[in-house]
């Protein structure tokens, strides 16, 4: 049981909310677009990952419990 993150690269335009709010889960490429650092989120970073997804103005991040 854990949370996995999926990014829709086509939607990301580089607002950067995710890597500011959950830097253990999300990183940035050289343009400032989102990269996924860990696909399976460790429990201690779950809340941050949820907040990051909820703050993405492009709705580009989806979380799923597996």
């Amino acid at each position: 049981m854990g949370v996995t993150v999926k990014l829709d690269h086509a939607k990301c335009v580089g607002h950067g909310r995710c890597y500011e709010l959950a830097p253990e889960v999300f990183g940035e490429d050289e343009r400032g677009h989102c990269t996924i650092l860990v696909e399976c989120v460790p429990p201690e970073h779950e809340k941050a990952a949820l907040i990051a997804a909820a703050n993405c103005p492009e709705d580009a991040i989806k979380l799923a419990r597996s």
Binding site: V13, G14, H15, G16, I51, A54, P57, E58
Partner: peptide, 20 residues
């Protein structure tokens, strides 16, 4: 406020270049 998807820097392809 925890969930804040404000669009003060716009959204889509023209997201403010200077937002960072």
């Amino acid at each position: 406020r925890e969930n804040n998807r404000h669009i003060s820097f716009g959204a889509g392809a023209h997201r403010c270049l200077g937002s960072h």
